[in-house]
């Protein structure tokens, strides 16, 4: 997994609540048997017209937001289907961090396993960030996982919570498999005594 320590980048304001994983990547992109190239399908229904041309009014298509690495979305981001393709699409497109007042559980977990940092901030802070980056798209936002802070150009700082174990995994780029495998003796013992 790609480690995440800190990021200084521009952000895209996605002023929408309940963005489900079907919207992040529609089912027709799920026919792949690898993870590659998912970014092409990212938000495809809201990003493209049916004939495949980009919709000019969608933020991701606006020139001022090209190259942004942070997505700022409304509450309950990533709800619905468990498809990890949603995270692969976001990272393949270039996002490394999503800020929202709240994430759906499976999406949150999937993000952590792919080096995409989910940052939970209060509704008011997210609303303020939307205003800020809509007004000034070039605003650089600093996200530092070590200090668990989001810092704005004017020095304003907002802390976010993250599970300490998950923080270490992200900082060091560790995946769960190594940790679970280190419990092999316990797994063997469990299997010997379990009912099923």
């Amino acid at each position: 997994m790609q480690p995440f320590t800190a990021l200084s980048a521009a952000a895209v304001p996605l002023r929408m609540e309940n963005v489900d994983t079907d919207q992040i990547i529609p089912a027709r992109y799920l026919t792949a048997v690898t993870k590659d190239g998912m970014g092409a399908g990212l938000f495809s229904w809201i990003r493209y017209h049916p004939d495949g041309t980009p919709k000019a009014d969608f933020v991701l298509n606006q020139p001022e937001y090209q190259g942004a690495r942070i997505l700022i979305a409304g509450r309950n981001f990533g709800s619905g289907s468990s498809r990890e393709h949603a995270v692969w699409a976001l990272t393949d497109y270039g996002f490394r961090c999503v800020i929202s007042p709240g994430f759906a559980d499976i999406f949150y977990n999937n993000s952590l396993k792919n080096g995409l940092l989910p940052v939970t901030l209060a509704e008011e802070v997210v609303a303020m960030l939307w205003d800020l980056v809509e007004e000034e798209p070039a605003t650089t936002i600093q996200v530092d996982l070590r200090s668990q802070t989001v810092t704005l150009p004017d020095g304003q700082q907002h802390s976010f919570a993250i599970d300490p174990f998950r923080k270490i995994c992200l900082l060091e780029g560790l995946d769960d498999l190594g940790y679970i495998s280190s419990k092999e003796a316990e797994i063997v013992a469990y299997e010997a005594r379990s009912a099923y």
Partner: peptide, 11 residues
Amino acid sequence: GTSEVGHVLAT
């Protein structure tokens, strides 16, 4: 998610 599917298959 699919990463976890891998973890469960393996462990």
